[in-house]
Amino acid sequence: MTTRATETPGLLLRHPDGQTFRFDPGALCLELLATGGPGEYARFEVLTGPRALAAWAAESRLPPGLRLAADDAGAAAARGLRDALWGVMAARAHGAAPAPAGLAAVNAAAAVPPLVPLIAADGTRAWAPGEAPVAALLSTVARDAVDLLTGPHAHRVRECATHNCALLFVDTSRPGRRRWCSMERCGNRHKVRTHRARRTDDPTA
């Protein structure tokens, strides 16, 4: 489950083990990956239908107020793009070449007209009136992926350093030393393991 945290950047993810933690992957396209995925990631599935897709869009880093004309086919298309993005982004994180089929799926989604933003009367960013088609949402996500993978932070797309966590993020920090999906979860677990190992090595500690 994903929930937008209003007070700080990032999503609130609920792991199947019951823990809830904050995760900011640094890009819209990587937020989509937190909804599930192919193969072993299917147990994290969130995009179960049109309502779930609309909820994800509202919880994402997109400006609020988007009205989405979602249906079952649109939710299936979102899952398809997400699964393709998993392969493309994971390949980037590991320095490998992405599968041509994955790139083709991302490029095909990006070729569709994206969501149409506008400036509201109060000066904030808003969306064009009416319901937006799912294809426009997916185009916006795919174009975000194109910008990320062809931009200055492409080499900073990384997988969480914890051996049993595959969450992907882009490190946009100035020092570029981010290792964990979340300090609340994997970063803290690493600290605990390190502390226990030191106590084991030093009986007097």
Rank of each mutant, 00 (worst) to 15 (best):
H15K: 00
G49M: 11
P129K: 10
A34F: 03
A97K: 10
Y41G: 06
G130Y: 05
G49C: 12
L53D: 11
D83T: 05
I119C: 07
G36Y: 06
G37V: 09
G80C: 08
V106M: 15
P63Q: 07
L28T: 09
D122Q: 01
H94K: 09
D72M: 11
G36R: 04
A34I: 11
N107A: 11
P63F: 08
Y41Q: 15
G36K: 06
A101R: 08
W127R: 06
C29Y: 07
F23C: 11
L28K: 11
A135V: 15
G39I: 06
A91L: 05
P113R: 05
E31R: 11
R67N: 05
V112W: 02
T20D: 02
T124Y: 00
W86Y: 12
V88A: 05
I119F: 00
C29L: 05
G39P: 10
A120Q: 04
R61M: 14
P117N: 01
L115A: 09
G37W: 01
L118A: 15
A55N: 09
V46H: 13
L81W: 01
V106T: 12
E31K: 02
D24I: 02
A109M: 01
F23H: 13
V112H: 15
H94W: 01
G87H: 09
L13Y: 09
D122S: 01
H94F: 08
L85C: 14
Q19Y: 06
I119H: 09
R22W: 04
V88M: 03
P113D: 04
L81S: 04
A96I: 05
P113W: 00
T20N: 02
V46S: 12
R82M: 06
L66Y: 03
R43L: 10
V88I: 07
A54M: 04
P114V: 12
R79P: 14
P98N: 03
Q19G: 14
G130K: 02
A55P: 11
R125Y: 10
G95K: 08
A76W: 00
A111F: 02
I119S: 01
A90R: 13
L33H: 00
A78C: 03
E31L: 10
G95A: 08
D83N: 13
P63V: 08
L32A: 05
A90H: 14
Y41E: 15
A90E: 14
A84Q: 06
P38A: 12
E45T: 15
G49K: 03
A70Q: 11
P25W: 04
A69S: 10
P100L: 14
I119W: 01
V46P: 06
P25Q: 05
P64L: 04
W127Y: 10
A57M: 02
D17E: 11
A90V: 13
A27P: 01
A70K: 07
L81F: 03
A75Y: 08
E31D: 14
Q19V: 15
T20F: 00
T124I: 00
R67Y: 02
A96K: 08
R67S: 13
A90F: 05
P114W: 06
R82N: 02
P63T: 07
P25F: 01
V116F: 02
P113F: 00
P25M: 09
A34N: 08
A58G: 14
